Structure formats: structure tokens, C-alpha cells
Amino acid sequence: MAKSGPVGVGIIGAGVISDTYLDNLNSFPDTSVIAVGDLFEELAEQKAAGHGVASGGGVEMVLGKPEVEIVVNLTIPAAHAAVAEQAIAAGKHVWNEKPLSLDRASGKALLDAADAAGLRVGCAPDTFLGAGLQATRRILQRGDIGTPMTALILFQSPGPESWHPNPTFFYRDGGGPLFDMGPYYLTTMVQMFGPVDTVAAIGSRAREKRVIGSGPLAGQEIQVAVPTHVGAIVRFESGQSLQC
């Protein structure tokens, strides 16, 4: 018999982005946030209390709650696949923040595990569902402007360390503009042009160190471990291309 009432949600990862998720999930009548978990249990407890969530604590606490049906995984990118696999092993559906994983092998293993368990995995971003991009997709599908052969994407930013209170993970494995911002644009283009066939890319680092500019860690240096500039040419199965 199908369950009625709000879907129970457990959040794992109590960092900066969790406030946005908690604000939104608590505003919908069909979702109910049951618990917030984090490796730093005190942080999860504070976040839960601040958003009116009954339980805050460790990861196992969230996974052990039978009323949690979906785990929203907001951990750092390097932990996304492992935490999602834990949730699947506990019988939970998963919504991952981007990226799904750091490589194709771990991403496929995650999806295979979910499939075997009869569970679903979703992943950010969902911005391509917005009105503007959906209108663009309809225009292309109708052929209003003919068949576009190529697209150009440009994104430039000095980096998040000037405003983010704890930006180190942006410059570790799973960070950088490719994994942090790239999913928004690449997801959009896959929706517009279809599956990708071939990619050629190069990456480089503008600086070897970054300095945190705000918050309690201001002044601390970050050693950059990932490319902070990426250029790519993408060919789609349709024959269309993308420069980004």
C-alpha cells in the first residue's frame, strides 16, 4: 500500500548550502525534514535547532531513522559517492549535490547499487527545469531558429574564497570550476543537444595558493590542488558542438 503524507527527508552535511535546502524543504507540504547529520555532530545539532528540525547528530543517526525515506547528501564532493552508498545500503533513496561522484567508475557503482536495491538516485543541478531554459528547449525542438550547430559557454569568477567562510574544499579533489559550476552548464547543454560523444579539454591553475577573505578563517592560505581554469570542446552524438 502506498504511503500517504509528506516524504521523510534526512539531510547529511550541515555546511553553508544546507540552509538553502532546509529553508526550501521545510516550505513544501509534501516533504518533512526528519533529521540533520554531519561528521561534526554539534554543527548538525545547531543546524537542526535553527530550522525547527527535531533531530540533529551523526550520520548513522540519520540513516537509522525508518521515517527517513530520502537522504539529501550535502557533504563535500570527495565524500558524495561514499555517503550515498551508505544511504542506499540503509534502504534510502538519495539526492546528491553535484557532482554525483569524482569519476565514472564510482558513479556507475553507485547507480548499480541503487538499481539492485530498487532505489532511486537523483543529482543536482535541477536548474535546467527552470522556465527560461525549458522555453529555450521548446524553441529548439520546434525548429524556430533552425538547427544550431554549436554553442558557447563562458563562466568567469575570481573564486569563492573572498566570501565563503570555509572554501578549502573548492580547491581539493572534486572542487574547482569544472565540478562546482560546470554541472549547471553541461547539464543544460545535454538537455538541449543530447548525449555527449567526445570531449577534449585542458586545465591549468592561475595561482598555487589562495587566501580566505572572510569569516573566522580569514587570512589562512589554501594550497590549490585542482585546475582553476578549464577549456573544452565537446562533440554531441547529434553532431552539434560546444565550446566552453
Rank of each mutant, 00 (worst) to 15 (best):
S4F: 03
G5S: 04
P6R: 03
V7Y: 12
V7S: 11
G10F: 12
A14E: 02
I17S: 11
S18C: 12
L22K: 07
N24C: 13
N24S: 13
L25N: 07
P29Y: 10
I34T: 09
L43E: 00
G58T: 11
V59H: 11
E60K: 05
G64F: 06
P66Q: 14
V71E: 07
V72P: 07
A81F: 00
V83C: 05
V83E: 01
E85V: 03
Q86T: 10
A90M: 13
W95H: 03
E97W: 08
P99A: 06
A105S: 09
K108M: 15
L111N: 13
L111H: 11
D112Q: 09
D115F: 02
R120Y: 10
C123K: 02
L129A: 10
G130T: 07
R138V: 14
I145H: 00
G146N: 07
T147P: 08
I153P: 04
Q156G: 14
S157K: 04
S157P: 08
S162V: 01
F170D: 11
G174Q: 00
G175S: 11
Y185I: 08
M192V: 11
F193V: 10
V196R: 01
V199S: 00
V199A: 00
G203V: 01
R205E: 08
K209Q: 12
S214T: 00
G215P: 01
P216A: 13
L217S: 11
I222F: 04
V226S: 06
V230I: 04
A232C: 08
E237H: 05
S241W: 12
